[in-house]
Design a protein around this nucleic acid. Structure first.
Lengths: 132, 132
DNA sequence: CAAACATATGAACATCTGTTCATGTGTTAG
DNA sequence: CTAACACATGAACAGATGTTCATATGTTTG
């Protein structure tokens, strides 16, 4: 039961049945799409991105990261938990300190592609800075 | 002025100066990291992910997408605006209808890598479902 | 055991985000 | 021009999110 009330949301000649029928079976299950969005949410925060960048260079303990990013130990710890739950980092205990490291090479690719996109779309953005 | 008050946030022997000095210059500017996080925020929503998946198959008009995803035309339009501002989709007018299409091939790579990560980390997750 | 330290975590709070609802804009047909 | 339609958008509201603060857990040292 599609939501077509207000006017009539596209007459029949607008919704192209061939396309709809072709696209529908290609869609992954809702659960996969949900998990995927959840994963990208993890990348969608400056603090977590900065943490990942820091870990590109070397494994590191919590307080090192906190100092590097000039943030509270608590804030960093909370975010490391999010990154760990997303399987993007792993932790290793050594005495009192806990070392965190990247746990997946897809991270580099994803962030790299994100950066490339920024470069490229920035290049394209010339004379129409704001086109809302 | 790093925030080291509560206890002392890691004694000097914990924060490894060599590592800090090595990592610091490798960090991109704050602005780039902010933009990157903003970009991934766009991927961090089920509706937008579903829209992108739909556009993988074919360019499409707003009401087609709304019908496919069984959502309001308004909701879809709002999200298309977000995707367009992030330069992930472009639009083309043809009479009354507006067609949207992917505007960047990095999108496929990024989503593909995200999916791969899910497969892989799902595989690794065996006997420790919840390890908060 | 107690003290010191590195890290983890729960609650609270302010901010951000996505959808809905109502309405505005741009285009075509009559 | 007017009506109908496809789409865009502003305001508002509920739900999600990140940081802070206080405190708990786990480890080493004496």
């Amino acid at each position: 039961m599609a939501k077509r009330d207000h006017a009539q949301v596209c007459a029949e000649f607008c919704t192209h049945p061939e396309i709809l029928d072709k696209v529908k079976p290609e869609m992954p299950d809702e659960e996969r799409l949900y998990d995927l969005a959840e994963l990208f949410k993890v990348f969608g925060d400056t603090t977590r991105i900065r943490i990942l960048y820091v870990l590109f260079e070397s494994e590191m303990c919590v307080c090192d990261i906190a100092e590097l990013l000039n943030m509270t130990q608590s804030a960093i710890s909370h975010q490391l938990r999010v990154l760990k739950q997303a399987r993007l980092v792993r932790s290793r205990r050594e005495g009192k300190t806990v070392f965190y490291a990247l746990d997946d090479d897809h991270v580099r690719t994803i962030i790299g592609q994100g950066m490339e996109h920024l470069e490229e779309s920035h290049g394209r953005r010339k004379k129409h800075e704001e086109d809302l």
